[in-house]
Design a protein around this nucleic acid. Structure first.
Length: 557
RNA sequence: UGUCCUGUGGUGUAAUUGGCAACACGUCUGAUUUUGGUUCAGAAGAGUUCAGGUUCGAGCCCUGACAGGACAACCA
């Protein structure tokens, strides 16, 4: 019997299966995730991580973690540490195959000399501006550098002296000798090495010349015997250059495959812009829960599984895309719904007095921990005469479709009694300060009378037993689906949502007193919340990860 | 006025490689529900950028337009 694949293959896996059929790489699948350690990873990287590690997993292959650290002035160990943490957190392991472009500096240097000896590279002393000018434009050919025809010996000597530190930064560069009229700008004698007297986070001051990304990336893949070098679309035009290097150097040739990077509605994804948000103080840091960074999402309360599932669902293709953030939220809720323990918490407290309930009596109510997972059992929550309910759950003059509490109407208190509103107390300004109700003792949850139909069920917390906590409610960071859509003269920051963070004091059930940073809960009827590291034993802090899905009827007041 | 890449419901991804467009999210109904959540049932929404061509038959092949994206850092 034939086993049919449940899901159709994405175009990359199709290529791989074809390669496996033809034996192109000896049925090997070896990918890599190659970040530059110059910033924090974001959800776009997560797509790439899932693709690279996931592909290796799928085909019983390997996936390396390789840091593209060819620019010492921008890179730092802080970033390599965070990247490793994030990849692990997502659930992937490189099994010790942690490599660095800087591991190959000596080999790369050798490649450069080889090119010089073949007459395919030369040392150019044109200024940075002149190199730009000589390059021509996208529609017009460039012109050749006056240094282009130096002898091999001269080039070799100069290049060795570059390495030896005889020249100042920017004095000269090593260039490939290809074609200054090539329609692809990258082929117009690209720079291979530049002089940079800078301390490298791994090699220290061993080098004062560093390879350019283009001269490093493809060869690093080659050195590691990567079979499929999966990268984003903007490197499509670089592929001919990489192929040129591989051919001239006569080294192992990986196959580069480009895919479209992830874009999400209501967010920005470029490292530069994220950095701007951090440095401009628009958010509290890289791990601000509003950031699309992996660490931000983690702090917000996302689960690795939900992100992996998301990456799987969005698929991989070559056309530019913008994924609706609601899909990400859907994956999140789907995961959290199954796992998060339910709790009662009141975000906008409104006092409620049950007039016919004995003054000092406390009843212990049975509450379900997670209806999606019976294994999690039950817990007790205290009930008393004085409660808090949520402001939104009461309306003095409700529309017909309002299911919650209003004067003269009944509502069920979750896990407790059916109550009826008898009175509304207001202050001098007419603001409602207190609701008075009566309860029906026959309707306690579990009793036969509790099955009586009422329109709605609301959550509550006993005033005397509740603990206080801080909640941080988040909305999208930007008001427009596409934050780049701005008036002339403005930039994406003009679209920032002034209400993306709202901090509140809330009352929650006492069992939330002892919580650990990172723990996730569902506050019933409100959303999923995650314990923030800012929590203290005195005062827990909860981040609202995402609201529950809300029907229109509930949202409209 | 160059090169390369890409055009399928609102969004994303499919379509057994030429056989009358499917799945998911979103939207909207209805049922169930002690979460206006979950679950369940159902609906609307594209005729595949356009125009030609090949073919009994084209989203898939060919030609030509058009549209969008990428590329001119001693960044990656």
């Amino acid at each position: 019997m034939e086993t049919k694949p449940e899901k159709s293959l994405n175009f990359i896996h199709e290529i791989i299966e074809e390669d496996n059929k033809t034996g192109k790489f000896g049925n090997r699948v070896h990918t890599r995730f190659p970040p530059e350690p110059n910033g924090y990873l974001h959800i776009g990287h997560a797509k790439s991580i899932c693709l690279n590690f996931g592909t290796a997993e799928k085909y019983n292959g390997l996936c390396n973690l390789r840091f593209d650290d060819t620019n010492p002035v921008k890179e730092d160990v802080e970033y390599v540490d965070s990247i490793k943490e994030d990849v692990h957190w997502l659930g992937f392991d490189w099994q010790g195959r942690e490599f660095y472009a800087s591991d190959y500096f000596e080999t790369l240097y050798g490649y450069a000399e080889l090119l010089i000896k073949k007459g395919k590279a030369y040392v150019c002393a044109l200024s940075i501006d002149d190199i730009g000018k000589f390059r021509g434009t996208v529609t017009h050919a460039g012109q050749e550098s006056p240094y282009r025809n130096r002898t091999v010996d001269e080039n070799l000597d100069l290049f060795r002296r570059m390495r030896a530190g005889e020249f100042a930064d920017g004095a000269m560069v090593l260039r490939a000798k290809i074609d200054m009229a090539h329609p692809n700008m990258l082929m117009r004698d690209p720079i291979l090495y530049r002089i940079l007297h800078a301390e490298h986070h791994r090699t220290g001051d061993k080098w004062c010349i560093y390879p350019m990304y283009d001269f490093a990336h493809g060869q690093c893949d080659s050195i590691e015997h990567i079979t499929h070098s999966i990268c984003t679309l903007e490197f499509e035009v670089h592929r001919v250059l990489y192929d040129w290097f591989v051919k001239e150097l006569e080294i192992y040739a990986p196959q580069q495959i480009e895919f479209a990077r992830l874009n999400l509605t209501y967010t920005v994804m470029s490292k530069r812009k994220l950095l701007e948000l951090v440095q401009g103080g628009h958010v509290k840091g890289w791990d601000d829960p509003r950031m699309p960074t992996i660490c931000g999402l983690r702090r917000r309360g996302f689960t690795p599984g939900s992100i992996r599932n998301f990456a799987d669902i969005i698929g991989v293709a070559k056309r530019n895309n913008v994924i609706d953030v609601s899909l990400l939220e859907h994956c999140l809720r789907e995961d959290l719904n199954k796992k998060a323990l339910r709790k009662l918490a009141v975000l906008n407290p409104l006092k409620l007095v049950i007039e016919n309930f004995p003054e000092d009596e406390v009843e212990e109510m049975d509450a379900v921990n997670n209806p999606e997972d019976p294994e999690t059992g039950m817990r007790k929550v205290p009930f008393s005469k004085y409660l808090y309910i949520d402001e939104e759950d009461f309306m003095e003059n409700p529309p017909s479709k309002f299911f919650r509490l209003s004067p003269g109407n009944e509502v069920r208190l979750k896990y407790a009694y059916i109550i009826k509103c008898t009175d509304v107390i207001k202050d001098d300004n007419g603001k409602i300060t207190e609701i008075h109700c009566t309860y029906d003792p026959e309707t306690r949850s579990g009793l036969p009378q509790s099955n009586r139909k009422v329109k709605g069920t609301i959550h509550w917390v006993s005033a005397k037993h509740a603990i206080e906590a801080e909640v941080r409610l988040y909305e999208q960071l930007f008001l427009k689906e596409n934050p780049e859509e701005v008036e002339e003269g403005e930039d994406f920051k003009a679209n920032m949502n002034p209400n993306s963070l709202q901090i509140k004091n809330c009352f929650c059930e006492a069992s939330l007193k002892e919580v650990k940073s990172g723990e996730k809960f569902q506050f019933e009827r409100q959303g999923y919340f995650c314990v923030d590291p800012d929590s203290t034993s005195e005062r827990p802090v909860f981040n609202r990860t995402v609201t529950l899905k809300e029907s229109k009827a509930k949202t409209q007041k």
